[in-house]
Every structure is written in structure tokens, then in C-alpha cells.
């Protein structure tokens, strides 16, 4: 049976949702699931990890040099723990992408990046070429598996778990050559288009830069990022850094709401990995309805205010 270790992502206070997604992937592999929580003075995070359904143990490692997820400091700790496990998993977030390959190299194996499906404990499915091809990849029998989990492919596991929380002592010391200085988060502003879990997007049907205010208002109500089709950018309603699609940004939010966007293939290329796509368009024949999870034929100028009203 597999013994699986997940490396938790957190900010010192709150467990990142990606960890719960890693648990879902670990369950698909099948076996005993532990979570390692590295940090300093982060007991609250340990409790959150322990509450995830399906987790056996939470290993708390607290040390000053582990306070921030510096890969050079974290990787040797994870390596020490890895000795007792068949699989070591991190999320395919910037934290996991930074850390896990360093772990894999120390273990001496190639990593499975962006795992979207588990085929067997040794075989996994992952995207390449920006999702234009999907490959099945297999490790040799007996090899330790190090992987990152493509968060958009996995649901977060539920709560209700009651894992044992164990305190462990850090085995290593600070690497000395790497120092964390600061994190400058985007703050209270609208979330960044690329990282937002919800995105509201508008097309040329908005008719003007002023018309686009409707989109911003709804986005702010939802805490969503704002995107636009190339037609809206070309018409000068919004700046080009808001363009979503083949020549703009490729995004994969949990929820993508497209208003007045016809859905040219160039636009679809930029959103096809979104978890749920909602389309509102006057034209019932618009190609976006071919790929939307939820479609509504209607005038965005009436629909958007209605949605806002319903959201209260």
C-alpha cells in the first residue's frame, strides 16, 4: 500500500485550498495520507490540515528558517521525511512548483508535474504543450514518486477529518545562501486576472469603455478578476493586458463568466481549462454556447443588473 506525504501550502495562518486538492489526488492513488506542515508558529494551520477528510497524520515542523517557503530550506526537511513514504505530493502552485523539483532532485528522480489524473500508483496523466496534448507517464516499479498536482483538475477534499497532529523537530538548518525578504500581495484591489478563481469577462457587445463599467461592478461584487475579448480590446474599451485568449492571457479560473463574447476559437483557447464557463449572449448561435457549461441567451445590459440584484 502507498504511503503518501503531502506538503502543505499556507501563509502562516491559513491552509491554502490547494492542499485539500492534493488530498483528493492522494485518495485517488490510495493509501495512508499524511500532511507535512512546515513553518514557524503555525499551529492554527496544523489544526486545519488535521480536519481534512481522509488524512491520517499531520506532521508539524516548526523552525525559524522554515517560517517562509524558501525551497532551499524546505527541500532538505521534506527529503528527510520522504524516506518513509512512497509518494511525496505538492500542489502545482508557484510554491509547489518551486519546492517539489528541488525535493525530487535530492531524492534522485524526475518529477511528475501537473498531475490531472491518477491511472495507478505509478502512472499518471498530465498535460503538455499548454494542454494541447495529454500524456500518460509511468515510473519504474519501486521508484519513489514526487509530483505536483494540477489544482484545477481536482476538487478540494471535505472537512470532518480528525488526523493526529505530531510535532517533529527540524532536522536541518538554514541554507544560509537564501533569504526571504518580503511578500507584496496585490492587496485589496481586484484580483489579478491570471490568478483569480473567478473571472468576469466582456466583449465588444459592451459598446464602449463606459459600458464596461457594468463588468467591473459585477466583478467587484463577486471578488472576481476582469478580462476582455480581443474585439473589446481592439475597440479600445479596455487596455490590452486584459485580453484573454490565444494572443492574450491563458487562464483557468474555477468560474469564468463571459458577457457578450461570441467565443471565437482564439478566445476559447485562453479559457478552455476553466472549471465552469458561463456564457451570456444575445446571439443564440454564438459559438461560445458550444462549450459553455451554463448558457443564457439574453441581453447583457438587462441580465447583469439582474444578477447583481439577486446577489444582494
Amino acid at each position: 500500500m502507498s504511503k503518501i506525504l503531502i506538503v502543505a501550502e499556507h501563509d502562516g495562518h491559513t491552509l491554502n485550498l490547494s492542499t485539500a486538492k492534493c488530498v483528493s489526488c492522494a485518495k485517488a492513488i490510495g493509501g495512508d495520507i499524511d500532511i507535512a506542515v512546515l513553518g514557524q508558529g503555525h499551529d492554527a494551520v496544523g489544526a486545519q490540515a488535521a480536519a481534512l477528510a481522509g488524512v491520517s497524520r499531520v506532521l508539524m515542523i516548526s523552525a525559524a528558517h522554515l517560517a517562509h517557503p524558501l525551497a532551499a530550506n524546505w527541500a532538505p526537511e521534506v527529503l528527510q521525511l520522504a524516506a518513509n513514504y512512497t509518494h511525496v505530493i505538492g500542489p502545482s502552485t508557484t510554491m509547489g512548483k518551486d519546492l517539489m523539483p528541488r525535493v525530487a532532485a535530492l531524492v534522485g528522480v524526475n518529477q511528475f508535474s501537473d498531475v490531472m489524473e491518477v491511472l495507478s500508483p505509478l502512472s499518471f496523466r498530465r498535460p503538455i504543450y499548454a494542454g494541447n496534448a495529454i500524456i500518460d507517464v509511468k515510473a519504474a516499479e519501486g521508484q519513489k514518486i514526487v509530483m505536483t498536482v494540477r489544482t484545477a483538475s481536482w476538487p478540494a477534499t471535505g472537512s470532518g477529518g480528525n488526523a493526529v497532529v505530531e510535532q517533529r523537530t527540524a532536522q536541518g538548518t538554514a541554507a544560509g545562501h537564501s533569504r526571504y525578504l518580503a511578500l507584496n500581495s496585490a492587496g485589496s484591489e481586484r484580483p489579478d486576472l491570471q490568478g483569480a478563481s473567478k473571472v468576469v469577462s466582456g466583449g465588444r457587445a459592451l459598446g464602449s469603455a463606459e459600458g464596461f463599467a457594468l463588468i467591473y461592478r459585477l466583478a467587484d461584487k463577486l471578488g472576481a478578476g476582469v478580462g476582455a475579448s480581443r474585439a473589446a480590446v481592439d475597440a479600445g474599451y479596455v487596455p490590452s493586458d486584459m485580453q484573454v485568449g490565444q494572443t492574450g492571457k491563458i487562464i483557468a479560473p474555477d468560474l469564468y463568466l463571459a458577457f457578450g463574447i461570441s467565443g471565437a476559437i482564439q478566445h476559447i483557447t485562453g479559457i478552455k481549462d476553466s472549471r465552469t464557463i458561463v456564457a451570456v449572449n444575445k446571439d443564440a448561435e454564438a459559438p461560445i454556447f458550444e462549450i459553455a457549461d451554463i448558457g443564457l441567451v439574453g441581453d447583457l445590459f438587462t441580465v447583469i443588473p439582474e444578477i447583481e440584484a439577486l446577489l444582494g
Binding site: 465588444r204 459598446g207 464602449s208 463606459e210 459600458g211 481592439d234 475597440a235 479600445g236
Partner: peptide, 10 residues
């Protein structure tokens, strides 16, 4: 294209 900016060739 015909929008708030009037009719024009895009």
C-alpha cells in the same frame, strides 16, 4: 463596426 464611437472600419 458601429458603436458609441460611430461607424468605422476596424
Amino acid at each position: 463596426v458601429e458603436d458609441s464611437n460611430g461607424k468605422r472600419l476596424q
